[in-house]
């Protein structure tokens, strides 16, 4: 297929529609896989409800009645159809544990996770790209070595350890931040106090997430920049007298960002996933924490709902990455 110069521009909407359709197909496949995984899990919600009791304590009739109440006696495909047709309408079913609709719980937790995730993403993109560019431009300098050392340390230290250290120093020893987000009674705070609270409460969870993700983006950006800087076209431009700043900002950075965008997209998905460990350490009531609780209590509607929403976050991040890719490199639209 051949495109005229303006043909590339007209192909963009088609590209977007194709990627969107592909993303939706991926989501449908994910939904089926999730339902399949749930079926392979040992035990079910009734077992959890009656945990701690000898299997002989409750009659088989009552067990069956409880299974019927939860719809667990239906064939798998029927359960899937009930669930996915509800999801399309925004109804994720009712929690086995809490006996209330799941959707408001999930979306409330998603909102809380986003309050943590968006600043973390901003830090990741800004510092990841910024430090990556600086490290590449100062390749093999002491500054580059320092940045590399920091990034390696950030990758090597597990989030659980970083979070616990922050908690111990700033919450227990210095009492600057709340040790558990949900322990603070927000209803007693005025607007300014609430803003101050969110700032102090979020800064360390945010930094804990950012520490690892910044390092990923930084290292990718640095590697791409160094590779691009050694390209023939860069050397040619510099030899022809194009200012170094113009070459870097106008050409090298733009091309270096392509692989970095992939890493950013993956890390955005990771951050949107609630960064379960960080939420766990800081008792942050996000969607990752909710998923963990649901797994422990075998609350299938919440498990399915949270996993689906997190998966959708990954798919969305990759969709946006594809679009950005095509904006930065129109040749991508032809594939």
């Amino acid at each position: 297929m051949r495109f005229a110069r303006n043909g590339v521009m007209t192909a963009f909407p088609i590209f977007v529609v194709r990627r969107l359709a592909a993303s939706l197909l991926v989501l449908v496949a994910i939904s089926m896989i999730l339902m399949g995984i749930i079926q392979f899990m040992p035990g079910d919600a009734v077992d959890m409800l009656l945990r701690g009791l000898s299997p002989d304590t409750v009659s088989a009739e009552t067990r069956e009645a409880l299974r019927r109440d939860l719809g667990l006696d239906l064939p798998v495909w029927y359960q899937y159809w009930n669930w996915i047709s509800g999801v399309v309408q925004g109804d994720f079913g009712s929690s086995y544990t809490f006996n209330v609709p799941v959707a408001p719980i999930i979306f409330a937790r998603l909102k809380t996770s986003l309050i943590l995730a968006l600043p973390a993403i901003a830090v990741m993109v800004t510092f990841g790209i910024g430090l990556g560019v600086v490290a590449a431009l100062k390749e093999n300098s002491p500054l580059d070595a320092s940045i590399q050392l920091m990034s390696l340390t950030a990758i090597a230290m597990p989030a659980f350890l970083v979070g616990s250290l922050f908690l111990y120093v700033f919450a227990v020893q210095l009492n600057w931040i709340p040790a558990a987000f949900n322990a603070v009674d927000l209803s007693r705070l005025d607007t300014l106090e609430t803003i101050a609270f969110f700032f102090t409460a979020l800064i360390f969870p945010c930094l804990t997430i950012a520490a690892e993700t910044v390092a990923h983006v930084l290292r990718q950006t640095r590697a791409s920049m160094i590779e691009e800087m050694k390209s023939n076209y860069v050397r040619a431009a510099l030899l022809r007298g194009v200012p170094r700043g113009q070459v870097i900002l106008g050409h090298v950075l733009r091309n270096s960002l392509l692989p970095a965008i992939t890493v950013i997209a993956i890390n955005v998905g990771y951050v949107l996933g609630g960064v379960i460990v960080v939420e766990f350490v800081f008792s942050y009531p996000g969607i990752g924490n909710l998923m963990l609780s649901a797994i422990q209590t075998r609350d299938v509607p919440i498990m399915l709902g949270t996993m689906f929403v997190i998966s959708a976050g990954y798919v969305l991040a990759n969709f946006v990455a594809d679009i950005l890719y095509s904006a930065l490199n129109p040749r991508v639209r032809l594939t």
Binding site: L167, V172, A179, A180, N182, A183, F280, S283
Partner: peptide
């Protein structure tokens, strides 16, 4: 009644006076 899953965080919250 505040749920805090991780005992270390729970204890830190107690030490800091949050609970």
């Amino acid at each position: 009644i505040v749920p805090i899953k991780e005992p270390t965080s729970e204890f830190a919250a107690l030490q800091s006076g949050a609970i």
